[in-house]
């Protein structure tokens, strides 16, 4: 299962990287005589509302999404892990960081995102805007996972293997890195996997506020916005392609990582 998942993931990554050669058209080319076109030989997944080839946009969108969403997810889980480890180190540190996490969870960060968009130059390249959006998502997403990780860490701190490590003279950074962190990998992996689709969807929603990936650059998030209309999904089932690929990729990531966990 893991092998199949890895092969599929590799194939999706390779296709996205080779989009310039594989995609039949540019992601921006508008075939205005065929908007909302059905799947055909020339357009395997049909065309969008502006007549752009959906298959080509899916491939180019994968570049943005498969690179930036996992990167943002990685940033937030690494931040969460570091903060959880720090919080577990002492009582006052825990209280401080838990208060910070609560503050992060309660504050309406949408205003920060809006301010970031307002500060971004209007003629900033599309990729820069996308980087800022995903970077902010990653930087702001640590609070939830850090609380989960801290709870797990505290459970581990009372366990026999930590007691044994401490009795053997293992302290501080070494205890955290050698004994605690490896035991958190399944949890970190799960948080990472949960974060990827969440960030892809968040990017799609941020598009409503002008914070997503700007036109004409596609992303899976922007392609998912086509699913707003339920009747369109019934009459044009190929609009579901980005959702199907997204589910497939996340499932493959899960299988790849969970199988890896069993090997640890």
């Amino acid at each position: 299962m893991r092998k199949a998942a890895v092969i599929l993931l590799a194939a999706v990554f390779a296709l996205s990287l080779l989009a310039d050669f594989v995609a039949p058209y540019s992601y921006a080319t508008q075939f205005r005589d065929a908007p909302n076109g059905a799947a055909s030989r020339s357009h395997p997944l049909g065309t969008d509302a502006l007549g752009r080839d959906r298959f080509s946009r899916l491939l180019y969108g994968a570049r943005v999404s498969l690179l930036l969403a996992p990167s943002a997810a990685l940033v937030s889980v690494v931040l969460a892990l570091v903060i959880a480890l720090l919080a577990a180190s002492s009582g006052w540190c825990e209280r401080l960081l838990l208060a910070a996490a609560d503050l992060f969870l309660s504050l309406p960060w949408i205003f920060l995102l809006l301010a970031a968009r307002a500060l971004l130059p209007l003629n900033a390249p599309s990729l820069a805007a996308a980087l800022v959006s995903f970077g902010l998502l990653g930087a702001l997403g640590w609070a939830g996972p850090s609380r989960v990780m801290l709870a797990a860490l505290k459970q581990h701190l009372g366990s026999d293997f930590v007691l044994l490590a401490r009795a053997s003279g293992c302290r501080g950074t070494r205890l955290a890195l050698v004994h605690l962190a490896p035991n958190l990998i399944p949890l970190v992996s799960a948080q990472f996997l949960i974060a990827i689709p969440a960030y892809l969807l968040a990017e799609a929603n941020l598009g409503l506020l002008g914070l997503g990936v700007p036109e004409p650059l596609p992303s899976w998030g922007s392609l998912l916005r086509e699913l707003e209309s339920v009747p369109a999904m019934i009459t044009h089932p190929w609009v579901l392609a980005p959702a199907v690929i997204l589910i497939l990729v996340v499932a493959c990531l899960y299988w790849a990582v969970s199988a890896d966990k069993h090997n640890v």
């Binding site: 809006l114 968009r117 307002a118 209007l122 003629n123 598009g207 002008g210 700007p214 036109e215 004409p216």
Partner: peptide, 10 residues
């Protein structure tokens, strides 16, 4: 031409 979408107050 760079298309920039902003929230209405902005």
């Amino acid at each position: 031409l760079n298309v920039v979408t902003l929230d209405f107050p902005a």
